[in-house]
């Protein structure tokens, strides 16, 4: 499995290659620098975890790739999103519609609000099938039934004509996943799909996606703030902070040998079941920066315990620590997991 960032290639052999993606929102309060030039690649069958606090740009980056951010106020300033050799940002709206749902599908955070309350579950699944696969009503219904069955909804045939409010939260997320998978997409982007669910249901949904990924061989981008989930399922992790990727690498490096103080802080704030009782959980001091007035140097500097003079003036770039593992920190060699 190829990992790492090699931006030198003129044509991409990767399934997906994001280059210098930059998204801003022009609001009344000023320009929000939501995504600031992120680049990465993704290969077939791979699972990428995108991790970061709320508002770090992880969802906006996904919506930008799908070209689903509201324009205005949003604007994709520059960058390329090369999917199967085509730059998605250069496609016409019509061409892009054939990518959405058919090639790249997306499931969202809150299954309570991301299903249309006035349409039946069945309709919302068959809709994509009729659109992208040219199925007729009967065929798409049959396929929807299979899908609901596959995501583990009991008595799927009876539930097809139910409305979202008749489903529980976990079932709705299963239905969302069924919708996402309906057209056999190459990439499934899961935008915090477990955040709004109970812990027990979270585990079920994670297992379900893992199982389906093994079965269908698709590529998954799993966006979350939950490092625990990512550890269990991702091959590679992008850690995002203030709209930039500040550390990226195979999951074992990120967890075992983090080289960015922010990653270190995130890992430190995970509860450890084997840890000694009575020890306070670590929390990163301070708040994430306001994305309107970004500091000049490293955005994490104000909260960083490793910071030096240079961090306040110069923004560090991603640099390689070992093959495939990069971190953007001037003091990355000092950062070690204790």
């Amino acid at each position: 499995m190829a990992v790492g960032i090699d931006l030198g290639k003129p044509t991409s052999q990767h399934l997906l290659e994001v280059r210098d993606l930059t998204t801003r929102f022009y609001t009344e309060d000023g320009v929000v620098h939501a995504v600031n030039g992120i680049s990465y690649t993704l290969d077939e069958g791979e699972t990428l975890g995108v991790v970061g606090e709320s508002g770090c740009g992880k969802s906006v980056h996904a919506l930008s790739m799908m070209r689903l951010i509201p324009i205005p106020p949003g604007k994709i300033e520059k960058g390329e999103v090369i999917f199967k050799g085509r730059d998605l940002l250069k496609l016409s709206e019509e061409e892009m519609r054939h990518i959405r749902g058919a090639e790249i599908a997306m499931i969202f955070q809150d299954p309570m609000t991301s299903l249309n309350p006035v349409l039946t579950i069945g309709f919302q699944i068959t809709e994509s099938l009729q659109l992208h696969q040219g199925m007729d009503k009967a065929q798409s219904r049959e396929r929807a039934l299979e899908l609901l069955d596959m995501v583990g909804i009991p008595e799927a045939a009876l539930r097809l004509d139910d409305y979202p409010h008749q489903f529980s939260g976990g079932m709705r997320q299963r239905a969302m996943i069924a919708m996402g998978l309906s057209c056999n997409p190459s990439i499934l982007i899961a935008d915090e799909p477990t955040t709004a669910l109970d812990v027990t249901i979270q585990a079920q949904i994670v297992d379900l996606v893992k199982r389906l990924q093994d079965k269908l061989g698709m590529t998954v981008i799993w966006i979350t703030h939950d490092l625990g989930v990512v550890a269990g399922m991702a091959d590679r992790v992008n850690v995002m902070y203030a709209g930039s990727i500040i550390e990226t690498g195979p999951v074992k490096y990120i967890y075992g040998d983090p080289h960015h103080p922010y990653t270190l802080g995130l890992l430190g704030s995970l509860p450890n079941p084997e840890g000694s009782m009575g020890v306070r959980l670590y929390s990163i001091p301070g708040e994430p920066p306001d994305l309107v007035g970004m500091p000049k140097g490293c955005p994490f500097a104000p909260r960083c315990t490793f910071k030096v003079e240079r961090c306040l003036h110069e923004m560090p770039m991603l640099e390689e620590i070992e093959p495939g593992h990069l971190a953007a920190c001037w003091e990355k060699d000092r950062v070690r997991r204790v």
Binding site: R97, H98, G101, F108, T113, S114, N116, V118, L131, M176
Partner: peptide
């Protein structure tokens, strides 16, 4: 602004269909 409108757009539906089928009834 609702999430299900983003869902509908993410399915690849045309803006017309999104508005007529998903937004109008609500």
């Amino acid at each position: 602004r609702q999430d299900y409108i983003t869902t509908a757009r993410a399915k690849g539906l045309s803006e017309r269909t999104v508005i007529r089928r998903h937004a109008l009834p609500n």
